[in-house]
Write a protein that binds this DNA or RNA. Structure first.
Lengths: 144, 144
DNA sequence: CTAGCTGCAAAATATTTGCACGAAT
DNA sequence: ATTCGTGCAAATATTTTGCAGCTAG
């Protein structure tokens, strides 16, 4: 079965444990939310969802945990046009994002051709590619 | 001759005048800086350069002017990873950016192939492309 | 036990805005 | 003259941090 998410929750804990980091109550709560989410929530949204489970949790802890997870490579941070940071599980292979400009929804996609072209361009300019960011801002096509 | 910049300064004024906007001292100062710059300065950097010419200028005015110019389509705003907004003249044809992760320098490039692929991907996903953002974060290749 | 976490409040960063005065048309 | 723009200070939004108490290992 494709229990990508339930699996990922355990995976997060494993990653943190291995890094010698304590598994605390707030962290477990946040991890569960990340593992559950099909979307790309921001810090505040994660905080809201976490507060429902454990009202004692603080926004600072959400931010601290996100930073920690990002450093450990467990999640990825995205900053789409004019908005706050939003997060997603790092599990799965690399992909880029299409953002629905009307709803804010995010669609993931991947193009090996574009990936290759990027490497090529960087090389041509005398650089070594470290990372990249490709975002398509688009509007759902109406069948006219 | 390729007096892209001197020309652009006048161009800015024309754009603003046409929009029924007053050409004031601070605006003229900021416009001159934009027209001059070969780089992608942020609001604070523009403010610093402007203050050298006219110490009375305020940071608010820089922000207000940038917003105005952006609305009029005279400049483009970029928000690169983890930094404040940076601006560039909208003149010239579309291009993407490679950011030197060590120095923050920006190299402009353009790839018709990538442009086409993006259109294609959006269409395949059932969307109509509105705009996009492609940034390559890279490090200068050392000749080993 | 005790180093690492947490919540809270305050700071930091980037940007926007209300207001009374001054300048452009 | 009148409207629009400015500087200043205060407000906003997002994220980070100092600190004293709490807790996981």
């Amino acid at each position: 079965m494709d229990d990508r998410h339930g699996q990922a929750a355990g995976n997060y804990e494993a990653i943190l444990r291995e890094a010698g980091v304590r598994i605390t109550r707030p962290r477990r709560t946040i991890l569960a939310i990340l593992a559950d989410g099909e979307d790309h929530p921001g810090a505040l949204e994660i905080f809201r969802r976490a507060a429902e489970i454990d009202p004692a949790i603080s926004l600072s802890t959400v931010y601290r945990t996100m930073k920690l997870l990002e450093e450990k490579g467990a999640i990825q941070r995205h900053v789409f046009e004019g908005g706050p940071s939003r997060f997603e599980q790092a599990a799965g292979r690399h992909h880029d994002h299409l953002i629905d400009v009307e709803t804010g929804d995010v669609v993931e996609f991947r193009s090996d051709r574009i990936e290759r072209l990027q490497e090529e361009i960087a090389r041509e300019l005398g650089y070594e590619l470290v990372s990249h960011r490709l975002e398509l801002y688009a509007r759902r096509r109406k069948p006219d």
